[in-house]
Design a protein around this nucleic acid. Structure first.
Length: 589
RNA sequence: GGUCCCGUGGUGCAGCGGCCUAGCAUACGUCCCUGUCAAGGACGAGAUCGCCGGUUCGAAUCCGGUCGGGACCGCCA
């Protein structure tokens, strides 16, 4: 061993003993006849000292920041005046007797010993230097501790951790697959899993009963601040359970995770539950941010008799007028409202009407189209207070709600409405089983294996498919989906019925999902589980908005790896063996 | 596929038509200094302002393109 102790370990109890420490030179303070070194490793910082004439003095003067050195010396208690209360080891120092340079270092491209911002690409290229910094290191620690906790927690409760392959069959469901060419089967391809969904259900058929995995998942879609090519999920499944069992198991786990690792407490436990229908009606979104309590209101009845054509026509055709109170923003500028309107339009709104309630007057671009009585009805229906602004959208219930929902999400941070001292968790339940595609067909709302909520919901596929609900449940914190899961369909006939609704024939289903469908015929137990993003969990715990911060070796927004300089060309011989020929070469290469 | 923002010594920022021979902080180098802990002091080296083209008497500064990065929409759990 190169050391007897770490740099975060020594206290006055060790005074007088000889020790050997090894680490990086964090900082050097050379006073001429007296030189100090802060020696750093993952565990902490210890001050090394040598006076003129003492054996280590010359060597300490010669080292530079980030050199790797090994120091042997005597632990010395510091006097009260010279102790450093900011360091755990600040009560002692090591008087150097010998200093061995294990490795010199070039001047680093950015600071290790300061918490100043550095351009991301540079950090990822020199991630090995970045990780020496306290902030990045502590995120790695947090991530490790959370994962270790999950493993221990689930192991204690009879779950088995089982690895599933990272090369599986491509399925054109959901996101674009990353694919890997096969050498034995030229022209055929493996796919990297977007999640181990089918495999974990098959494990349940195999009688594993309780399974989890810390699984890498891949999808080839354009990265964002909070999503990247590859992420890690806690994949989790249990047999002979219904929705309540899975939810209570996970709520217990996550409550405990937030209690142990969260910077902020959970605002409400047990975690409240809201159905999808209620979430859309009250918040206009299926992952509401409950750190602020403003809710959507219905204005249709207040305008039932209006002559204003924009509202009239919508109401006549069965639509609704929905509203959102923006507290205290009666003085909002045209520019503010335009910004919110642009946001509302991204969710399909044709426009966004605003009504400012100031004293007895109601100011609105559309005021001239409404009677005083109607304006008063709006005030009553929206419960607007003096100084409030009412935003309104007329459309179908879904479009009007969703449009105001995105505006609501924006208002929280923009107007500082959110209570940022706590985490606000909520369960969303009773999702639709299927939903309309833009082309007018049907597709699954979450994943194709989600069980109908009741037998009646399965029957609804024949009469009113959009009304059919499922045993899907999402766990949302502060407006972010932390995990989602469902109880699965465990009977082939039911699964095929759901596929049929989405226009997937029996043959096609057999081709794409044959392994799972076959398994369902050999005694599949009822089961349920979740896929829970680890990256997003750690982000939420740490309060960071950027996934790359919680990954050890991140890629850029264009999927480039600055550290390994990947993707890269491969040996043409390899292409030949694989039966591949590059037809078009991207200009970036 | 699209929109917006950014690109200036190693790092982080300022400068936004001539006053820039490009400023500040920090890092880096040399020297002084025996109780520092973001040590202090003195001196020094280091950038033709991402790249290409244009406008102009004159461009880091304005315009167009391009490359790279970031945020977002599309897409995506």
């Amino acid at each position: 061993m190169h050391r007897t102790h770490t740099c975060g370990q020594l206290t006055a109890a060790a005074a007088g003993t000889d020790v050997t420490l090894a680490g990086w030179v964090h900082r050097r303070r050379d006073l001429g006849g007296l030189t100090f070194i802060d020696l750093r490793d993952r565990y902490g910082i210890t001050q090394i000292v040598a006076k003129s004439g003492e054996p280590g003095h010359d060597a300490l003067g010669a080292v530079r920041n980030e050199w790797v050195i090994k120091v042997t010396g005597t632990v010395r208690e510091r006097s009260r005046e010279t102790a450093n209360l900011k360091l755990a080891t600040g009560g002692i120092e090591v008087a150097a007797k010998t200093v061995e340079v294990l490795n010199e270092a070039k001047t680093p491209p950015f600071y290790v010993n300061e918490e100043t911002p550095v351009e991301e690409t540079l950090r990822w290229k020199y991630r090995y230097i970045d990780l020496r910094r306290e902030g990045p290191r502590e995120l790695m620690r947090l991530r490790h501790e959370v994962v270790a906790y999950i493993r221990a927690y689930l192991t204690d409760r009879d779950f088995w951790e089982i690895e599933t392959p990272t090369m599986i069959r491509s399925d054109p469901t959901g996101a674009r697959d990353f694919i890997v060419p096969s050498r034995y089967y030229p022209g055929k391809f493996w796919a990297l899993p977007q999640s181990p969904q089918q495999l974990k259900q098959i494990l349940m058929v195999g009688g594993i009963d309780k399974y989890f995995q810390i699984a890498h998942c891949y999808r080839d879609e354009d990265p964002r601040a909070d999503r990247v090519y590859e992420h890690t999920q806690l994949d989790f499944e249990m047999s002979f359970v219904d929705q309540e069992d899975v939810m209570s198991t996970l709520e217990a786990l996550y409550t405990e995770i937030f209690r142990q690792f969260g910077r902020k407490p959970l605002a409400r436990t047990p975690v409240p539950r809201v159905t999808y229908e209620e979430a859309m009606r009250r918040y206009g979104i299926d992952r509401p941010d409950l750190r602020f309590e403003i809710e959507l209101v219905d204005l249709t009845d207040a305008l039932r008799a209006t002559a204003f054509i924009a509202f009239r026509s919508v109401i006549d055709s069965g639509g609704v007028v929905r509203g959102l109170i923006v507290p205290g923003q009666a003085a909002a500028t045209r520019k503010d409202v335009d910004g919110w309107q642009a946001l509302a339009k991204t969710k399909g709104a044709k426009g966004l009407a605003s009504f400012a309630f100031a004293g007895t007057e109601v100011r609105s671009p559309v005021a001239k189209f409404l009677t005083p009585a109607e304006l008063e009805s709006l005030r009553i229906a929206s419960k607007a207070k003096d100084g409030d602004l009412l935003l309104a959208v007329a459309d179908t219930h879904h479009v009007a709600s969703a449009s105001l929902g995105v505006v609501r999400e924006r208002l929280g941070p923009e107007l500082g409405l959110a209570d940022t001292t706590k985490h606000y968790a909520v369960w969303i339940t009773e999702f639709p089983l299927i939903e309309r595609t833009p082309e007018g067909g049907w597709t699954f709302a979450h994943n194709p294996f989600c069980a109908p909520l009741t037998p009646h919901d399965l029957e609804l596929l024949d009469s009113d498919p959009a009304a059919a609900r499922s045993k899907q449940y999402d766990f949302v914190i502060d407006g972010k989906e932390i995990f989602g899961g469902s109880v699965r369909i465990h009977q082939r006939a039911v699964q095929e019925r759901v596929f049929a609704q989405m226009g997937v024939s029996k043959d096609e289903a057999q081709t794409r999902f044959g392994a799972l469908l076959d398994a369902l015929e050999y005694g599949a137990p009822p089961s349920g589980g979740v896929g829970a993003g680890i990256d997003r969990l750690v982000m939420t715990l740490a309060g960071t908005e950027n996934v790359r911060e919680v990954q050890a070796f991140p890629k850029t927004q264009t999927g480039y790896d600055p550290l390994l300089d990947a993707p890269a060309d491969v040996d043409p011989k390899l292409l030949e063996e694989l039966g591949l020929r590059v037809v078009a070469k991207a200009p970036k290469a």
